[in-house]
């Protein structure tokens, strides 16, 4: 039986200490910060912050959660750059609204404005030299 999987050898490198200011979209701001500082690939190590409102994707469902002051409880995900160096962030996590209801999913691009701040730590992912993605 063949197993469908692909691997990329690599290591963790520099650590980016990031803050996103209010009203910036979570996903596009993370991508812009990576583009501005030439951070091609990265993983989320920790993040604490809040959103004005939130839109999460979960399967075929879209969860729209009204704020303000939605707390980002956990954030996980990665940034990957395409062949021409354009970074794309895939960010997933859990949030709580003002009624202490908890929701989870993938943060939709362009729909999650930062409320007060996002404190974010990314760590660079460095593919091994000459490594190509094995299948």
């Amino acid at each position: 039986m063949s197993i469908a999987a692909s691997f990329e050898a690599g290591s963790l490198g520099r650590i980016a200490v990031v803050r996103i200011r209010p009203n910036e979209d979570l996903v596009t701001a993370v991508e812009a910060a990576c583009r501005e500082h030439r951070l091609a690939h990265a993983i989320v190590r920790s993040a604490v912050g809040s959103l004005v409102d939130a839109v999460l994707e979960a399967g075929d469902r879209t969860l729209e959660v009204a704020g303000p002051g939605i707390e980002i409880l956990t954030l996980a995900g990665e940034v990957r750059s395409d062949k021409v160096g354009v970074p794309e962030a895939d960010l997933r996590g859990t949030i709580a609204d003002g009624k202490a209801q908890v929701y989870g999913g993938r943060f939709r691009r362009g729909a999650n404005p930062i409320c007060i701040t996002l404190e974010l730590v990314l760590q660079e992912w460095l593919p091994a030299v000459g490594a190509s993605r094995e299948t």
Binding site: R14, I15, R21, P22, N23, E36, V52, D53, P113
Partner: peptide
């Protein structure tokens, strides 16, 4: 996407990043 008017003027840059060592 709804944005809110903050009490103070918007500060620049909108994204801050500093490099820490591995």
């Amino acid at each position: 996407m709804r944005t809110l008017t903050q009490p103070g003027a918007p500060l620049q840059p909108r994204r801050l990043l500093e490099w820490a060592a591995p």
